[in-house]
Simulated assay, not measured.
Amino acid sequence: MSSPSYRDITLNGLWKNNPALVQLLGLCPLLGVSNSTVNALGLALASAVVLICSNTAVSLVRGVVNTAVRLPAFVMIIAALTTCIELLMQAFTYELYQILGIFIPLITTNCVILGRADGFAAKNDPGRAAYDGLVMGLGFGAVLVMIGALRELFGTGAVLANMHLLFGPIAADWQLTLFTDYRGFLLAILPPGAFIMLGLLIAGKNRIDQILAERARATQPQAPAQSRRVRVTGVIE
């Protein structure tokens, strides 16, 4: 079985097989912490780092891990990396860590990470495994941040609020207020708003795929009809 090309890995992670829009994996953190941009970005970065490192580690040990203990070994690797991320967040972004709460330890059971470890990293070389983790992390994180930004915008009329929780004092003035005197739209920042935003993004992606497929069919040259051969056996006058 030939290894997938880096181009195919990129297309799958960002669009064709996006873990959030196509596979619908990791919906618990995707919907649970996407009520603001900073929360979504913090969880997206943490998940991406664990995904890259776990894919690389799983690929490195795939030849020495017995099949009977493969999944427990993968879970232990992911749990160890998640613990490292959790300790780093406690040290440098403690307030954001408190806001994200249980969703940081739950990275261990994120279906995106475990699925890529077992479905891709365990079957490919470390280079492709690490790149797959990067692209899948970017695809998942992009959807997460997009939902967080849209919910924050429609809910409060501003985006990038409280970014200092992630980037420190340098980001204290990053907030952009797009609608002044905005009374807010409570549904956007409540849990139902996350389902609505995700549904709209999935519908938008499906519509784009449909348009691209129609254009591809329209530009594809049609095969010429096979000419029929007529054999004349005789002529009677």
Rank of each mutant, 00 (worst) to 15 (best):
I78C: 06
V33K: 04
A73W: 11
E152T: 01
R62I: 04
A91K: 14
L138G: 09
S54T: 13
G119W: 01
T180H: 15
Q98H: 02
T177N: 08
P192A: 09
V22I: 15
D173S: 11
A20G: 00
Y182W: 12
A161L: 03
T180S: 14
G148L: 08
F74D: 08
S3D: 10
L25I: 02
T177F: 01
R215I: 12
F154Y: 05
I78R: 04
R7W: 15
V22Y: 03
L81Y: 08
F195V: 13
L187W: 00
A223P: 01
F195K: 00
I189Y: 04
L88V: 13
M163N: 09
I107D: 06
L81V: 00
N124M: 05
L187D: 05
M197N: 11
V58T: 15
S34F: 01
N110V: 13
M163E: 05
L190Q: 12
E237A: 15
G184Y: 02
A161I: 05
L30V: 06
T233D: 10
V49Q: 04
A142L: 15
Q23C: 00
S3N: 08
D181S: 14
L45P: 04
D125Q: 00
V65P: 01
N206H: 14
G32T: 05
G32M: 06
Q98F: 02
F74G: 06
G26R: 06
K205W: 07
T82G: 02
F154G: 01
E95S: 11
L166D: 04
S227W: 08
E237F: 15
A117M: 10
N206S: 14
P4F: 08
V145A: 09
K123V: 04
I147M: 12
I78H: 08
N206T: 13
P4M: 06
K16W: 01
N206A: 13
T83L: 15
L25D: 07
Y182D: 09
L60C: 11
L153D: 05
V69K: 02
V64N: 04
P192E: 05
G234T: 08
P29H: 07
L45C: 09
V38H: 02
C53E: 07
M76N: 12
F185M: 13
T219E: 14
M163V: 00
S59C: 06
G26H: 07
F195G: 10
L201S: 04
R228F: 06
S5F: 11
L160R: 10
K16R: 12
D125R: 01
S59K: 01
E152P: 09
G127H: 11
L31N: 07
T67W: 15
L31H: 02
A149P: 03
D8I: 13
D118W: 00
L45M: 09
A68M: 14
A218D: 10
Y6G: 02
R183V: 13
G119Q: 12
L201A: 01
T10M: 14
V135C: 00
P4Q: 09
V159R: 03
L165H: 02
M89Q: 08
L51E: 03
L11N: 09
A142I: 10
V64C: 08
K123M: 07
T83N: 11
A149V: 12
A68N: 14
L201H: 08
E86D: 15
E214V: 14
P19W: 00
N110Q: 13
N66A: 14
L176D: 04
L100T: 02
V38M: 06
L186M: 08
E214C: 11
L178Y: 07
F140Y: 15
